[in-house]
Each structure stands twice: as structure tokens, then as C-alpha cells.
Nucleic acid binder design. Structure first.
Lengths: 215, 215
DNA sequence: TTATATTGCGTAACGCTGTTACGGAAAGCG
DNA sequence: CGCTTTCCGTAACAGCGTTACGCAATATAA
């Protein structure tokens, strides 16, 4: 029955796993609470004490799971980039045609920003520094998101749809366009209405089409 | 000699002016201290008490000259936009050719961001909300800066250099490109080196040239 | 079962922050 | 000289991120 493990040893094992699971759960609860509170209060007005209150723990407890507030925010940004990356991947898979794929990527980028403005501001405007900060090599989600675009660009070049050149540079320029429109749309609020966003997007797409695509 | 004004009246007048001048001076000193401190400490880590200490006053005194910290920051942003606007105007005046003018504007925009990264982050990333917030109709510097670009676009369209279309939309798209490159260059730091910035700028200019210019 | 070791968490505190109520000193003014 | 206005500092409030410390509960071993 017990193959070289006593009952006590097995109990110790499951007990250890349960405690690890509880730790993971609490860590997740902290992250979720931070996320929801962040959506309500925004970047400023997000405090450790409020997060703690929401999950029913003391503020100091958070420090057993995250080094400091920046660490917690970095996790939020990571979470955002994972969702962002998924949207981009979904868009990239929506078509096999490189041209349509790039258009879908651009639209997916802008849509993400418009649907998650608070997160977008954190990820790309307020804490832009996280994007390039090497945080114990844990910045995979950011890199992956860019990789999706760059890969599409490379495919476009190989297929002869995009003009030849450095894929990274081309990706950066495309990123610049969609980021600019997105951030302007978010900040503009009422002054920059939906129609203007749509028109700008349309014109930007055409500009990319005629400025970067091969003919 | 005294044309219907007594000496006492004249004294009262100059005294009043002197006090007004002193108020203006102090207001300016607060703004300058905030600016220099902001350049050193950045957006976070800029406190009323530090500003006060730098000018030799109590922290509460600042509140006699600015409503709150946001009001003070708004003044800083205004200051930044005045300098920004001047750079743009200078660039616009550098050439009579609409094509060259637009290129100069784009380059001036990017240069401003690279030379004043701290200010650029405040103006266009951290407190982007100031851009569109109507603060007692005091947002002229922001509007003016955009106006310079939009005017150049209109001239370009009239001259047949730029493709016909809504000047505002075209301006937004151009702004998006330069803003994207600038913010990426600032945030990227070492990862996004000067050469990449130059290459991206060059490609972006060409994209604008072939995507928005008439042929 | 009992004793020891480890883990998990809260309390209290430090030095900050933005902001306000209040009082006192100085200057203007008749 | 006396009154009024202007100007500014002190003290305080509530809140912030963060840390040192200690207690209680649990796990482990005898």
C-alpha cells in the first residue's frame, strides 16, 4: 500500500502543498484587489492600506507577497500585457493575409486602449518605464507583445507586402502611430470624439498602407 | 507740479505697485523653484515642503499663490508648452517650403522631447489630462502649439503638397507619429539608442511623405 | 502528548505627504 | 498714535509607504 512512504510523510506533503496553495491564492487575491481598486481609483489614490482592507488583511501583510508597491504595480502591468498580448495574437490569427493581419493588429491595439483606458495609461504612459526595465528577467509579457507585431512585420516583408527594411524599425514606426492615436483618444475624452478617432485611425491605416507597403 | 495728485496719493500708488510686483516675483520664484526641483526629482518626489524650503518660505505660503499642487503643476505644464510652442514656431519659420516646414516641425517636436524628457513626460504622458482640461480658459499654450502644426498642414494642403482632407485629422495623425517615437525614445533609454531613434525618425518621415503627401 | 521550531500576520511607529484652521507680526493708512 | 489690512508661520489632521517587533497559531519532532 504505502510504497516506501509512511502516512506521516504523506500528510506532511499534502500539508505543505495546501499551504503553498493558500499562499498562491492570497497572492492572487492581492493582485485582483489591486486591479479592481486601480480601476476605480486610478494610479494616484491607490494605497496599500485600501488594498489590504479590501481583502481583509493588514497592510503589512502585502509585503510578505510583494516587495513593495512598485513590485505590485509591475505585476499589474504584467497582467495587463498578458491580456494585451492575447488580443494581439487573436488579431494576428484572424487572417492569413499579411496585409489584413497588420490591419487587424493595429485595430486590436487601438481597441485594447479604448476598452481598457486605465490600464493603457498605466502600461504605456504613467509607468512606461516598466516596459524596458529589466526586472529579474520577468518582462516576458512586454517583449512578447512587441514580438507579435514584429513577427507580423517580418512576415509582411518576406511576403513582399511590406517594403524591405529593418523589421524592428518598421515595427517601431507602426507602433508609434497606433500608440499616438490611442493615447490621444484616451486623453482627449469628449474633445476627441469617436468619429475623430475613427477618421484618424482610417487615415493612419492608409498612411501606413501607402508609406510602408510595397506596391 | 503735482497735477491734482498729492504726494501721499503718489506714494500710495507706487507702494501698491511695489507690493504687486513683489507678489508677482514670489509667484515666479515659486514656479522656478518647482521647475528646477521637478527636473531633479521628477514627477513623484516633488513636494510642497521641498519647494517652500528652496525659496525660504513655509509650505503653506505657496497656497496663497496657487490653489493646490495640481494648480502649480498646471502652471509648469503651461510653461513647458510655451517653450514647446516657441520651438515649433521657430521651426515653422525656418523654411517657406511647406514640405520642408512640416519636416522641420516634426524634427523640432522630437528634439524638444529628447532635450526635455522630464518635461515631455509631464506634459504628454503623466499629466496628459491637462492637455484637454479646460482650466478657466487658461490652456492657450496647449492650443497654440497644436495650432502651429495644423496651420502648417493647412498651408500644405492649399499648396497642393499635402493630400486634401480634414486638416485636423491629418494633424492628429502626424502628431501621433512623432509623439509615439518621442515617447518611445524617452522611455527606452539605453535599449532604444540614438541610432534607432534616428532610423525610426527617418522611416517615419518617409512614411508621412509617401502616405500623406500628394504626388 | 508535549516541547520546540517555524510560519503568518497584526500593532505600533517613523518620516513623509497635501492641505487647512488659526494666530500673530508687520505694514499700510487715516 | 490707533485701526485695518496684508502676509506668513505654527500646529495639526488624515493619509501615505514602509519597517521593526512580537504574538499566536501551526507544523514538526521527541
Amino acid at each position: 500500500m504505502s510504497q516506501s512512504t509512511t502516512q506521516a510523510e504523506r500528510l506532511r506533503e499534502v500539508s505543505r502543498r495546501r499551504r503553498e496553495q493558500e499562499k498562491e491564492d492570497l497572492r492572487r487575491r492581492i493582485l485582483d484587489a489591486t486591479g479592481s481598486l486601480f480601476l476605480e481609483q486610478g494610479y494616484e489614490g491607490l494605497s496599500m492600506r485600501q488594498i489590504a482592507e479590501r481583502i481583509g488583511y493588514s497592510a503589512t501583510t502585502i509585503y510578505r507577497y510583494y516587495n513593495d508597491k512598485d513590485d505590485l504595480l509591475f505585476a499589474i502591468v504584467q497582467d495587463g500585457f498578458m491580456r494585451f498580448g492575447k488580443e494581439l495574437v487573436k488579431a494576428a490569427q484572424s487572417s492569413d493575409d499579411p496585409r489584413e493581419r497588420l490591419a487587424a493588429l493595429g485595430q486590436a491595439y487601438i481597441n485594447f486602449g479604448l476598452k481598457n483606458p486605465i490600464y493603457y495609461q498605466l502600461m504605456f504612459m504613467q509607468r512606461f518605464d516598466f516596459l524596458f526595465e529589466s526586472r529579474a528577467e520577468k518582462q516576458a509579457p512586454m517583449i512578447d507583445s512587441f514580438a507579435v507585431l514584429q513577427q507580423a512585420v517580418e512576415q509582411g516583408m518576406q511576403a513582399g507586402v511590406l517594403r524591405q527594411g529593418d523589421p524592428e524599425t518598421t515595427s517601431i514606426v507602426i507602433w508609434s502611430v497606433v500608440h499616438g492615436i490611442t493615447s490621444l483618444a484616451i486623453a482627449g475624452g469628449k474633445r476627441f470624439n469617436k468619429n475623430q478617432v475613427r477618421e484618424s485611425t482610417k487615415l493612419a491605416m492608409r498612411m501606413i498602407g501607402e508609406g510602408l507597403m510595397a506596391r
